[in-house]
């Protein structure tokens, strides 16, 4: 069957099998391997993309179902060579180590900041609660999103206060 959709603002049209999942359409048919393919069971959230501005787990959506809709992937965050505030936040605040979960984290938190430009820690944690990161313990991800929120609001003065007491106590315990 033929499927046509907008991906990162450009219309794409391909002949596909109806059973093709959106994640494989993006990665294998369009070569957009920024979207990662993880657990395959809608648990890990690394495959999250935005469909009509809402985060969706692309391993649990058929490419056919995205036909006629606007899909945005992690490749669509950067605009004209300028990284999204979230991408810069993840760099500034060490929001990733291995990077496997990062595309999904970025897309979910992009949607969060679009709806709620000034989220609390709790709201950030709630938003990413369907996503798994095995490196950071989430604290630096939350901090990265806070950094991006402040950056967007134009009130960046310094890094958000360190709230990761576990990290500092772990250092203390090692000495």
């Amino acid at each position: 069957m033929q499927v046509t959709m907008s991906v990162n603002g450009a219309e794409v049209s391909r002949e596909i099998e109806a059973r093709l999942l959106l994640v494989h359409f993006l990665r294998d048919h369009l070569g957009l391997t920024g979207t990662h393919w993880g657990c395959d069971t809608s648990n890990c959230g690394t495959c999250v993309v935005l469909v009509d501005d809402e985060p969706v787990k692309s391993c649990t959506m058929l490419a056919a179902m995205a036909g006629g809709h606007d899909v945005r992937t992690v490749e669509g965050l950067e605009q004209d060579g300028v990284l999204d505030p979230l991408q810069r936040g993840f760099m500034e605040c060490h929001g990733l180590q291995c990077g496997f979960c990062t595309p999904g984290m970025l897309m979910t938190t992009r949607a969060l900041l679009d709806r709620n430009p000034d989220p609390t820690d709790h709201e950030i944690r709630e938003a990413i609660s369907g996503q798994i990161c095995r490196c950071t313990g989430y604290a630096t991800i939350v901090r990265s999103v806070q950094w991006a929120a402040a950056e967007q609001a134009g009130i960046r003065t310094s890094l958000p206060e360190q709230d990761d007491s576990r990290a500092s106590s772990a250092v203390g315990g090692a000495s």
């Binding site: 969706v56 649990t60 979910t108 369907g130």
Partner: peptide, 9 residues
Amino acid sequence: IADPVVRNR
């Protein structure tokens, strides 16, 4: 029920 992303669908 599930998580916020799943609840979108």
